[in-house]
Design a protein around this nucleic acid. Structure first.
Length: 463
RNA sequence: GGCGGCGUAGCCAAGUGGCUAAGGCGGAGGUCUGCAAAACCUCUACUCAGCGGUUCGAAUCCGCUCGCCGCCUCCA
């Protein structure tokens, strides 16, 4: 039984899907006017892991993540760059896909773009206008907040206090200063679509309502995003959608914590972002993931090169097991998992079931790793047992998105083999000086030589 | 000002009423080794920001104080 912290109820709730055996989830994606940063990476990895875990538990998962490809900043930057907003957005959509793939994040089942769903949005807005939840003014359309009493429930905002503390300049045309735009009349030079209220473009919040409904239905299981989206974005999504359908929108609201730079939140507007593509030049994606998952997804995490490097060291300990298992593999059929290693999967599931407690899960994986190394060193159960154990570890780690790439090696190149043999001869002559030279030379070719009781072991450096 | 979150070892980080307070990094010692490396073993918080309270019992619940962060405006 999976339990999930639901932002809506502020409690950890038992997860029951709407349709048995099926999970439908929607995650808010990025506004594509720049390269994705580590904060986006966190959100992506968090929901990637949640999705993978649902799949691991046997659910059929439909995962939708959108692109916001029309927005003030996209328009402005596209103008500055002298290209169309569409071209500009497309460039960063491509970049985002590359970045996410480089992090081992699985592609969504559907990744809709706002600009390709304007028709759906217009129909939604029409319904809202018809039912009195929205009103047009001079080419704009606003959502009437007072027509939806539950507004504020998700974010825990009190409407009166919201008004009192409002920092936004008041638009006198609005019936209520808290009303938000569903449709914005076009200014000259902006991308625009025809609508019953004249040419214009959709407001931000309406796109997620329209796309989530289109691909997942009026009610679906899980809606996710960064915690900075709780208000106003998700609050407004709920208002629009539920005012329109009269049905509950998402059943579980899941929000990930922010990535901080120092003490401050990493955000595009603060200009303190670190792009994913810069980071993957310096760090193994698995090390990044291990670092991210070492903090519970709801807590804030502070960016630190040092912490990521520490994670890389921790990762190496596990990676070494894979190489040893690969080396010991003899092509025989898979051995059954020895009882000594049977405790780890239940522990893994218990931790994941409890609101995707990945830090605890990692503890289980490292315990598992130690047990495996111990078995390997003592020769307990023979190589078959060791290999079966490593396979199990890899299966569990992959639910976290770790070790998704090939973990077996192609074996050392002939040149390395030749040098290793020469080193063996030198050492047999007790010519250790020559032996160490050869070891250094092999090292320069990217392979680490270690002497074990069973003979020398070769490991590719940096996995 | 309103709402929410956090403060656990040198660092990172789980645990949220009761066995010895996970795990990672770092550090110390040991086994192994020609030397290494790796691995494994042992040790590294009598204590959970501080002060009160509830309880047979609290890091875990309640109150207050101090410090930090987020949202209330675009933001993952």
């Amino acid at each position: 039984m999976i339990r999930i912290s639901n932002t809506m109820t502020r409690t950890k709730e038992e997860f029951t899907p709407l349709a048995s055996g099926e999970v439908r989830m929607y995650v808010c994606g990025v506004t594509v006017y720049d390269y994705s940063h580590i904060g986006h990476a966190r959100s992506a990895m968090v929901f990637d892991v949640i999705r993978r875990y649902f799949t691991f538990k046997g659910y059929r998962v439909t995962f939708v993540k959108n692109y916001t490809d029309v927005d003030d900043r996209i328009i402005k930057r596209a103008n500055d760059a002298g290209v169309t907003a569409r071209e500009f957005a497309e460039r960063f959509i491509q970049a985002e896909r590359e970045d996410m793939a480089s992090l081992g994040v699985l592609a969504p089942d559907v990744d809709p773009k706002a600009t390709e769903h304007v028709g759906e949005m217009i129909r939604l807005i029409e319904q809202l206008v018809a039912s009195g939840h929205a009103y047009p003014i001079e080419g704009d359309v606003y959502f009437a907040i007072r027509s939806f009493p539950p507004y504020g429930r998700l974010s825990g905002k009190n409407l009166d206090e919201l008004l009192a503390g409002a920092r936004v300049e008041v638009d006198e045309r609005k019936r209520d200063p808290r009303d938000f735009a569903l449709w914005k009349g076009a200014k000259p030079g902006e991308p625009a679509w025809d609508s019953p209220w004249g040419r214009g473009r959709p407001g931000w919040h309406i796109e997620c309502s329209a796309m989530a409904m289109k691909y997942l239905g009026a009610t679906f299981d899980l809606h996710g995003g960064g915690e900075d989206l709780i208000f106003p974005h998700h609050e407004c999504e709920i208002a629009q959608t539920e005012a329109c359908t009269g049905k509950p929108f998402a059943r579980y609201w899941v929000h990930n914590g922010m990535v901080n730079m120092g003490k401050e939140k990493m955000s595009k507007s603060l200009g303190n972002t670190l792009n994913i593509r810069e980071i993957v030049k310096r760090h193994d994606p698995d090390a990044l993931r291990l670092w991210m998952l070492g903090t519970h997804y709801r807590n804030m995490i502070e960016w630190s090169e040092e912490r990521v490097e520490e994670s890389a060291r921790a990762l190496e300990r596990l990676a070494r097991l894979f190489h040893d298992a690969a080396a010991a593999r003899d092509g025989g059929g898979p051995a059954p998992l020895p009882p000594a290693f049977a405790e780890f999967r239940p522990r893994f599931e218990r931790a994941m079931d409890d609101d995707f407690n990945t830090p605890q899960v990692l503890g289980v994986l490292f315990d598992f790793g130690r047990a495996l190394a111990d078995a390997r060193d003592r020769g307990a159960g023979g190589p078959g047992a060791f290999i079966a154990g490593v396979d199990e570890l890899v299966r569990l780690a992959r639910v976290l998105g770790l070790f998704g790439r090939a973990t077996t090696t192609d074996g050392p190149p002939a040149e390395v083999q030749r040098l290793l043999a020469a080193r063996g001869e030198a050492r047999a002559r007790r010519d250790f000086r020559r032996g160490d030279e050869l070891r250094d030379e092999i090292g320069r070719l990217g392979w680490l030589v270690e002497d074990t009781p069973a003979g020398p072991r070769l490991t590719p450096k940096g996995r």
